[in-house]
């Protein structure tokens, strides 16, 4: 119990961020027209690509002689980049299509 309280004390700020972000996420999406469901899902998919930052840190702190760690980190960076770049480009294409439909 005591260790839990210490942990909460040490990570207060993080816990506040988490709590507020949960409510923010719910509010931000509030009322979305159903046509936008798929593009929004795709956009959110690109945003969770922030994991790439963790992958960069892992890779950047890995021992240069430890090839298994380097390889693991390399794949993490590669996959994370795919998520971010691919995610944003696909979303852009979806929204582009959406615009055309509206005009036509």
């Amino acid at each position: 119990m005591e260790s839990l309280l210490t942990w909460i004390g040490d990570n207060q700020q993080m816990i506040y961020i988490v709590l507020l972000s949960i409510f923010l996420g719910v509010e931000v999406i509030g009322r979305v027209p159903s046509v936008l469901h798929t593009p929004l899902m795709s956009g959110a998919n690109a945003i969770h690509g922030v994991v790439i930052i963790g992958a960069i840190i892992v890779m950047g702190e890995a021992d240069p002689d430890n090839y298994s760690a380097l390889l693991l980190g390399f794949f993490a960076v590669l996959l994370g980049t795919l998520n971010v770049v691919g995610g944003f480009v696909v979303t852009d294409r979806m929204l582009e299509m959406f615009k055309h439909k509206k005009k036509g």
């Binding site: 409510f23 996420g25 719910v26 931000v28 999406i29 959110a44 945003i47 969770h48 994991v51």
Partner: peptide
């Protein structure tokens, strides 16, 4: 970013 997507998703 993560939590936002978690809750919005």
């Amino acid at each position: 970013g993560g939590i936002l997507v978690g809750s919005a998703g």
